[in-house]
């Protein structure tokens, strides 16, 4: 098996083989979650801290459940109610967790690059659970895993990512992962949220501002959340966004029959996706959440499950 990561920061340094190793492991982990007693002793004695400087429901719950299913000790820290409010810096906090015996630290931070800084000064494995608009590798892996479980090979599959690309760490990590597996990635959104520079930044990625054209022949669509906390004035109004970019049944009919629909959540009801599509038969949204636990178990196992001298 190919695996040589001590940290998981983004997918730009993952080979196809390493992504395959994660997906294959996740598939075995998914079976563990269906057992009458969904718990295995694999990471007994390991300590996993989750350190969140931004709000989160599913990512955090999913990581903690993954670590607990593998029998690790799990401690969750929310920055808003920790010594961070007394002015403790990120590195001091990381050092403290290390002194408490952390084997892995799952870090979410509003600043792009924060996990890289942490990784440089820390022996524990850092897992990026989202850093600013930069990367969210575990979300991308669970999106890819969800697609793979349904479609098998992703080679040549047209995947449209639509919405607030500019602020999306989910889009950025998905681009790396999907490309590594040979998918064709098309980004779509209003030009203010999808600058043409994206076409230059990512070789082979297409930029399309017209959603109906983008969806032509697509096998999967990832709709992104409009991130109000990161922008207020880049679109004229929600109504206008909905009129041009909401994923609805009529637009989805341009895609391949049975094309799969994903959304990283949380969903702004009725904005980026029509509730009917979000709950429809082509939607993987609920499955994504369950698969997220299996994928995070796989990563924790790969990071902490080996023996070291």
């Amino acid at each position: 098996m190919t695996w040589h990561h001590h940290h998981v920061l983004d997918l730009d340094d993952f080979s196809r083989e390493e992504i395959e190793a994660v997906l294959e492991t996740a598939s075995a982990m998914k079976e563990v979650l269906t057992r009458p007693v969904p718990k295995v002793p694999t990471l007994r004695g390991k300590r996993v801290f989750s350190l969140f400087y931004e709000p989160s429901t599913r990512t955090r719950a999913s990581f903690e459940l993954a670590a607990k299913t593998l029998s690790a000790e799990v401690v969750g820290i929310t920055a808003q109610v920790s010594s961070v409010v007394k002015g403790e810096s990120l590195l001091d906090t990381i050092k403290t967790l290390e002194a408490l015996g952390a084997d892995a630290i799952v870090l979410r931070h509003p600043e792009a690059g924060a996990p890289y800084l942490a990784a440089r000064y820390c022996r524990a494995s850092i897992v990026n659970a989202g850093d600013g608009a930069h990367a969210h590798p575990t979300q991308a892996l669970l999106d890819i895993f969800s697609l793979r479980q349904r479609l098998g090979d992703l080679e040549g599959l047209k995947v449209v990512i639509v919405g607030d690309i500019l602020h999306s760490r989910v889009a950025r990590s998905n681009i790396w992962g999907l490309k590594a597996l040979g998918a064709r990635v098309v980004l779509c959104g209003p030009p203010t949220l999808l600058p043409i520079s994206f076409a230059d930044a990512y070789a082979g990625v297409e930029v399309e501002w017209d959603l109906e054209r983008a969806l032509e022949g697509a096998g999967a669509v990832i709709a992104l959340r409009l991130q109000w906390e990161r922008q207020q004035d880049l679109i004229p109004s929600v109504e206008e966004y909905v009129a041009f970019y909401q994923l609805n049944a009529q637009r989805l009919s341009r895609a391949r029959p049975g094309a799969l629909v994903l959304h990283p959540g949380p969903v702004n009801e009725g904005v980026e996706i029509d509730p009917e599509v979000a709950r429809g038969p082509q939607s993987l949204i609920d499955e994504q959440v369950t698969n997220g636990v299996a994928v995070r178990m796989a990563l924790l196992y790969l990071l902490l499950g080996g023996a070291h001298e």
């Binding site: 098996m1 695996w3 492991t25 079976e31 563990v32 295995v40 694999t42 499950g305 001298e309």
Partner: peptide, 19 residues
């Protein structure tokens, strides 16, 4: 694999499907 107490040095062994 997930229940072993004698894990070899290096990366963890590939976990395979239980049925």
């Amino acid at each position: 694999g997930l229940y072993r107490d004698d894990i070899p040095l290096g990366p963890p062994p590939q976990v395979r499907h239980t049925y």
